[in-house]
Nucleic acid binder design. Structure first.
Lengths: 109, 109
DNA sequence: CTAATATGTGAACAAACGTTCACATATGGT
DNA sequence: ACCATATGTGAACGTTTGTTCACATATTAG
């Protein structure tokens, strides 16, 4: 009984540890000017790597690396069309999260 | 006329650059397990450095450094009481931002 | 006053990060 | 088949970041 209770506590602890970790990694991905600009662009329309590359004035390689980071944390989804890879924001939470951040920032400037 | 128009555009551009920068720095501050745990603790109650230090099992120095980072970006406010420094979340946006992040993370686990 | 306690801070170090470079893969057109 | 185009990826490099350490400051107790 006590044993089971302890196990549950450990699992709960580990789960919240997992949540804290993913939360930190998610916010961390937002914590970069390049990725903010990518997300900002994607709030308006779906874009491919080449378009983002021109829009931000960066190499396709740099963009591609960043897109992977965004994809790994489910912040964007990818739709392949021929040789293009079109990216868009994954869910409504991403935009809400972004806007909530903006609210705070704009209030204090 | 054209000159003025250009100036306005530059100012607008710089402003949005400033916004993007602060947005990135704000999210970046959230992007760390230690600070997530600090913020999580502060959603429940106002706490001083020593209390946070015990709660997270970290040195007071480490906590103090982190509190400065959080304070610099207006995420927490500080109330001095004797030799104690009590910290609390600064505004409702912080909690909303945090919760919006949680929503996304919990959805994908 | 002195000693003890609570917090703040600069320097230093290792770890994590973002970009570039070179190259790999994959698709489309001819 | 070929070559051009679009994207992906590993290694390397310089930069940034978080913690520790040593010490500074500030407040309270005696």
């Amino acid at each position: 009984m006590v044993r089971k209770r302890l196990d549950e506590d450990i699992i709960k602890e580990m789960k919240s540890q997992e949540v804290i970790d993913k939360l930190a990694r998610t916010f961390s991905v937002f914590g970069d000017q390049t990725r903010i600009r990518i997300i900002l662009a994607l709030t308006k329309e779906e874009l491919c790597v080449a378009e983002l590359s021109i829009l931000l004035g960066m190499s396709h390689s740099a963009i591609s690396h960043q897109m992977r980071a965004l994809k790994d944390l489910d912040l964007v989804r990818c739709r392949k069309e021929g040789r293009r890879a079109y990216y868009s924001l994954n869910d409504i939470h991403i935009e809400n999260l972004f806007k909530e951040g903006l609210k705070h920032v704009l209030e204090k400037i």
